[in-house]
């Protein structure tokens, strides 16, 4: 990735990001998104004018006792799966 301040957005760049995001796009979508992304990223350029600002983290850990509680049943957890096998989710091949 470059440090260029002007984002160059062409259909190949859109394809690259779509690959990272695991979203297939057709040719029309790549063209259209490339045009729209150029406009949107140009608007985001205005963030360059924002000064560095101290950020106070208002964070606190929220804990509860580690006690066993009833969860979803296996059947309920599987109910929305497009395919199941022997009580498991069925996924595509890993490789």
């Amino acid at each position: 990735m470059s440090d260029d301040s002007e984002p160059a957005v062409d259909p190949e760049a859109v394809s690259h990001v779509a690959g990272l995001a695991r979203v297939d796009l057709d040719g029309d979508e790549r063209e259209r998104f490339a045009e729209q992304f150029a406009d949107i990223l140009a608007a985001f350029e205005a963030l360059d004018e924002v000064p560095e600002t101290d950020q106070e983290a208002q964070l606190a850990n929220v804990m509860r006792p580690d006690e066993v509680r009833e969860g979803l049943s296996q059947a309920a957890a599987l109910r929305n799966a497009p395919e199941t096998e022997d009580g498991f989710f069925k996924g595509p091949p890993v490789s």
Partner: peptide, 15 residues
């Protein structure tokens, strides 16, 4: 991702 819920992408090819 179409495994636990939603539209399935089928089972051809890699994940």
């Amino acid at each position: 991702d179409g495994v636990r819920y939603g539209v399935s992408g089928g089972f051809d090819g890699n994940w």
